[in-house]
């Protein structure tokens, strides 16, 4: 399994033709206390770059963008009841959705862990 990252601070951990998607620890830190997460319906389809979820802190709402095109296999409904998990385990238990990839070739446009770390360093 390999994890890829976007410039909008989403991650996708890929296993075959499925991927688990969330927001990065860096993004969660920037947002502050997460109080609400809105997830898509299972079966929803989206294109790379579409906003597919919303994460809200005390102060503001932020869109979460699809790192690749695909369809939603499963959503992490635990986040609806316990949105604070995003601050505790953004890159672990607090994943947002599992997706079926539409085009694995899109992954080559994403950053690997080292490239993402360097990207955040420069912000």
């Amino acid at each position: 399994m390999t994890t890829y990252y976007t410039k909008d601070h989403e991650w996708i951990r890929v296993d075959g033709d499925t991927g688990t998607v969330g927001i990065t620890t860096y993004a969660a830190g920037q947002l502050g206390d997460v109080v609400y997460v809105e997830l898509p319906e299972t079966g929803a389809k989206f294109a790379r770059g579409d906003d597919f979820a919303v994460v809200e802190s005390v102060k503001a709402a932020s869109d979460v963008y699809a790192p690749v095109s695909g369809s939603v296999l499963e959503v992490n409904s635990a986040l609806t009841e316990a949105p604070e998990k995003v601050n505790e385990a953004a890159q672990g238990d607090a994943w947002f959705v599992r997706v079926k990839l539409a085009d694995a070739g899109e992954l080559s446009d994403l950053m690997d862990e080292a490239a993402y770390a360097a990207f955040c360093e420069g912000l």
């Binding site: 502050g32 206390d33 109080v35 802190s57 005390v58 102060k59």
Partner: peptide, 12 residues
């Protein structure tokens, strides 16, 4: 200052 390291919720 919009927040300190404690964060908005803890400060509140």
């Amino acid at each position: 200052p919009v927040q300190f390291p404690d964060g908005v919720k803890a400060e509140h």
